[in-house]
């Protein structure tokens, strides 16, 4: 893997793929927008009906494809519109991160956050925080890994 120089790191803009539940976090993101809250443009949002609909394979595809971070957003525990989707998502994310760690990946590139429809500010803050955390990590080595 090529070494990343200091100069590259300063210019490096992480790319974050976000899988957001339609009812809470996506609406929260929408609220952040309509409230004109500023957050970094590093995030690419994919809307799903529920955090329980995030197939871990999507997360793997993004990670192996070189995404610098993956954010999964859902309703707070107890608030899932399908009762238990987020509880199941929680176990799935824990399992996936454990597998990635055992396989030698940096599992901290994957974040799960509960953000409700009214938490526009929390959404903006999460994107800021995650963008900085991923910037600090540097580019996902998978970006150049063509032999996988």
């Amino acid at each position: 893997m090529a070494e990343t120089t200091k100069a590259e790191t300063t210019q490096f803009e992480p790319k974050i793929i976000a899988f957001l539940c339609n009812w809470c976090t996506y609406t929260g993101a929408d609220l952040a927008g309509t409230s004109r809250l500023q957050y970094p443009p590093n995030i690419r949002i994919i809307r799903l009906m529920c955090s329980g609909a995030v197939d871990p394979m999507y997360v793997l595809r993004a990670t192996l494809g070189g995404a610098d971070g993956v954010l999964i957003g859902g309703c707070h525990p107890g608030d899932c519109h399908y009762q238990e989707g987020n509880y199941k998502a929680r176990r799935r994310v824990i399992a996936l991160k454990e597998i990635l760690k055992s396989a030698g990946f940096d599992e901290e590139r994957i974040w799960l956050r509960w953000i409700s429809a009214s938490e526009g500010a929390r959404f903006a803050e999460t994107v800021r925080e995650m963008t900085e955390a991923m910037r600090a990590k540097g580019p996902n080595p998978m970006k150049q890994a063509w032999a996988v």
Partner: peptide
């Protein structure tokens, strides 16, 4: 597109995706 993104793309692709998904 993948070959352009990474400079090259192993064929068959998705080998890691296969193993990690199966583990999952």
């Amino acid at each position: 597109q993948w070959a352009r993104q990474k400079g090259a793309q192993r064929m068959p692709p998705d080998t890691m995706l296969f193993h990690l998904t199966r583990q999952n």
